[in-house]
Design a protein around this nucleic acid. Structure first.
Lengths: 195, 195
DNA sequence: CTCCAATCGCTACTGTTGTAGCGTTAGAAT
DNA sequence: ATTCTAACGCTACAACAGTAGCGATTGGAG
C-alpha cells in the first residue's frame, strides 16, 4: 500500500490507491465483478469518495484506460514487413492470453461495448495504437516492400481485426497460427494494393 | 399483445410475451438498460416468473439469441466471389446500422462479452453463420476463381472481422467503402493462397 | 365433468447499489 | 503557530435486484 511518499497531498494518494485497487480488482474478478464497494474497501478509500470523484464503475474504467493509453508498447523491427506485422499481431494475441494483462484488457473492451465514456476512451487508445503500429508499414513502403498507395493504419486494422473478432465476437479460441495467418492476410491485401 | 391464439397453453403465451418484450426493450434501451423488471412489466408476466424460467437477464439474452440463430439469412449469389463477399460484409454493416435490428445485435455482442452463457450462445450463432456464408467461397472454388486449398470459413472471418473490429473494439464509424475494402482484402488474401 | 399436476401470481423479505447531509481532517498560506 | 478551504469519512437512508413461501389458476387426463 505505502509504496513511497510520493509528491502530492492526500488527494493524490487517494487517487493512486483507487487506481491500483481498480486494476487489481479487474485482474481478479474482471469487469462484470468490478464494483465500487470492492474497490473502496481494497483501496481503503471510502465508498462515497469514490462515487464523488469517479462517479461509479464507468469512471473507474475510463480513468484506468487513460493510464494505459500513455504507456508505450514495443513496436517490432525485424527488418521485413512480414516479421513486423506478425510480431504486432502476436503481441496482441499474447497480451490477451497473459494471466495478468489479459483480464484487464478484456475488461476494457467489455466496458467500452456498453459504456459511452469508456468507448470514447478506448477509441482514443486505439487511435494511438494504430498510429504507433503503422510505423512498420511506413518503413516497409520506404524499403519498397509495399506499394506506396496504402492506407497505413488500415493495414494494421485488417491485421489485428481477426484476433479481436475471434476473442470478443465469435468467441473462438485464437492460436498462434491464427494470428500469423491474420498478419499474412493483411500483408497479401496490402501487396495486392487493395488497402 | 394478443396477436393470435397460437397453439400451446399458458406457458407458451408467457414465453412468447417475454421474448417479445425482451426484444422490444433491447431496441429501446439496449443491453445496459435491460432489466428483468421492465421486461416483466412490459410483457404482463410477473417478475418472479421471469426469474424462475429464465434465471435473470443473461437467460433472457441467451433465449433471444437462440431464436436469432435459427432465422436464415440471405446469402448473396451475384455470380462472382467479389460481389458475393462484398454483399455479405455489407449485410453485416447495414444490419448494425439498422435502427431496429442494430440495437438488438449490438446488445447480443455486449452481453456475450460479459456473460459466459451468452458467449456460448453467440458462438453457436456465428458457427452457423460462418457455415452458411462459406457457401459463396465454395462456389468460387468450384468456378475456379480461387485456389482450392483455402479454409472457406476463414475467408468469411477475415472479411467481416474489420467491420466488427471497428464497431465494437476501436469504436470507429464504418462506411460502405470500409466494408467493401474489407471484403476485397479478404479476397486478395484468398487469391494469394494464405487462407 | 372432475380431478390433478404444473405453472404462474402475489406478498414479504433480504442484500446490494447509489445518494444526502454533516462533521472531520489534511494541507497550504500567512 | 493559526486559520481557512477543499476534500474526505461517516451515518443514515432511498431505490432496486433477486429470493422464498404459499395460494390461485390453467390446461390436460381419465
Amino acid at each position: 500500500m505505502e509504496t513511497s511518499k510520493r509528491p502530492g497531498g492526500r488527494s493524490a494518494r487517494v487517487r493512486d490507491a483507487v487506481r491500483q485497487a481498480t486494476l487489481a480488482e479487474l485482474v481478479e474478478r474482471g469487469y462484470p465483478g468490478l464494483t465500487v464497494e470492492s474497490v473502496a474497501e481494497r483501496s481503503g478509500v471510502h465508498k462515497t469518495t469514490v462515487y464523488r470523484r469517479w462517479g461509479g464503475v464507468e469512471g473507474l474504467i475510463s480513468d484506468a484506460l487513460e493510464l494505459a493509453r500513455d504507456e508505450p508498447w514495443p513496436i517490432p523491427d525485424t527488418g521485413s514487413i512480414e516479421g513486423d506485422l506478425r510480431g504486432i499481431v502476436q503481441l496482441v494475441r499474447s497480451g490477451f492470453a497473459d494471466p495478468e494483462l489479459g483480464p484487464v484488457s478484456s475488461a476494457f473492451v467489455a466496458a467500452a461495448v456498453q459504456n459511452p465514456a469508456a468507448a470514447r476512451a478506448l477509441h482514443e487508445f486505439f487511435v494511438a495504437r494504430h498510429e504507433q503500429s503503422a510505423e512498420v508499414v511506413r518503413r516497409a513502403v520506404e524499403r519498397g516492400e509495399l506499394p506506396d498507395v496504402v492506407d497505413v493504419r488500415e493495414v494494421i486494422r485488417v491485421a489485428v481485426a481477426p484476433v479481436y473478432y475471434r476473442l470478443f465476437v465469435a468467441h473462438e479460441p485464437v492460436t498462434e497460427r491464427d494470428a500469423d495467418r491474420a498478419a499474412d492476410a493483411a500483408l497479401a491485401a496490402a501487396r495486392a494494393g487493395v488497402l
